[in-house]
Nucleic acid binder design. Structure first.
Lengths: 222, 222
DNA sequence: ACCCGATGTATCGGGCCGATACATCGCACC
DNA sequence: GGTGCGATGTATCGGCCCGATACATCGGGT
């Protein structure tokens, strides 16, 4: 699941592990607290073995770098490959059951600006369905099992139910916005161009690299 | 983490795996969708190996049972041991870092009716602290990184932030209720050596409902 | 007669996590 | 001038949990 996220971040700019973790944490902060190194490094190795990313030695940057004063140990910089970009496009377009799970949905959503509109709608609606099911389950338990469960457990269910209802409303809004051709809170132009009109499912290759949008992520410290 | 939940449920009544899963799903439905068998059975084996639970053959109940007509295959009924009860008491009272994590907190909360008030407060406050930290992190990202993140990612953060704020408010209420002694005491008869003087909740504010009586879980009799 | 959905037990590979270990750097504090 | 500390940085290990899968029985509907 981090496969997608890592590939997505590396497409913006090459990074080393520590940096990657920080960016990941910033981008997915709403989903999970922080990705653990015990996940990150093995995933990186996996991606590398598959050929989606490559390991680049610490950049000497300008040739006349301070050569040996501070030897700048370690620091493995990872870089996405052409195959990796294809893989990313594939992952971002395909929807499995885990796409609608909490974490999976969050990751997909975080890269919506690189997802075409038809897929965005599919994911949003799938997620809504999922949350609605969950909501119905909670309602059932609350109405049916009030005798069997203690007050604290019921309170927990109620809080969960509230969260579900709220998320459904949020999703409804997002779906309505997608249909009417707006991006959330109206900002950030220059992302994926919308194709208004009919939702034609033509598989038009992979969405090419994000247009302008890519900006320098903290250039290597001098 | 399911160790606590399973021990807690088996303390109410012996059960077999399938039943256990359903009860778990009902009790923890607000936390996670459903516990997988790939977690349940290994956990059961672990608990058994540790001596916290024992495996009881399918009850012949009355001696003159229909002996072999329908052989009543399989059906392993698990039962908590004395050591298991001690273990449960230990687990429910102790608070580690994972106690304040989403899942860990949920499980602890679901068994609050078997937790003494001091521990309840400790957990509630610890959780609040955790969520507040998360909230601050999201605020930071939102205020500081609005330039670097696209509109969808920002929207995700906003939604996460909203959920955090809401949960903090929920926790505040619960804490206030605990302090003022309006414990929604759903304590099962004979389980908690509870602190006396906890009056039944006068309906005020939001901690509501009927103190649930634990009733016999259907000992299946088809 | 036949199939289907619920009930029921169980394993396997894989992903992710927390704990842990190690090493360097800049900086404040004494 | 030393000393310690927090941030930066890479990496592994054991363990929990999950989804997929396999297998078997039961009650009932068609």
């Amino acid at each position: 699941m981090f496969e997608l996220a890592i590939l997505g971040l590396l497409q913006e700019s090459p990074m080393h592990g520590y940096e990657l973790r920080k960016e990941l944490t910033a981008k997915l902060g709403a989903i999970r607290a922080a990705i653990s190194y015990g996940s990150l490094y093995p995933t990186l190795r996996r991606l590398q073995a598959a050929g989606w990313i490559t390991e680049a030695a610490e950049t000497p940057a300008t040739a006349e770098e301070i050569p040996a004063l501070t030897s700048r140990r370690g620091r493995v910089v990872y870089k996405i490959t052409a195959e990796g970009k294809e893989r990313f496009a594939e992952l971002i377009a395909q929807t499995g059951p885990e796409t609608y799970e909490d974490a999976g949905f969050g990751v997909h959503f975080a890269f919506f600006s690189r997802t075409d509109r038809a897929t965005r709608l599919r994911i949003l609606e799938g997620r809504r369905r999922k949350v609605e099911e969950r909501r119905e389950g909670l309602r059932d338990v609350l109405s049916r099992a009030a005798v069997r469960l203690d007050a604290y457990t019921l309170e927990l269910q109620r809080h969960g139910l509230d969260a579900c209802e709220r998320e459904v409303r949020w999703l409804e809004e997002l779906i309505a916005n997608e249909r009417s051709g707006r991006t959330p809170s109206g900002s950030t132009p220059g992302t994926v161009p919308d194709t208004p009109g009919t939702a034609q499912g033509q598989s038009e290759e992979h969405i090419p690299p994000p247009p302008g949008q890519v900006q320098e992520l903290r250039p290597e410290r001098p």
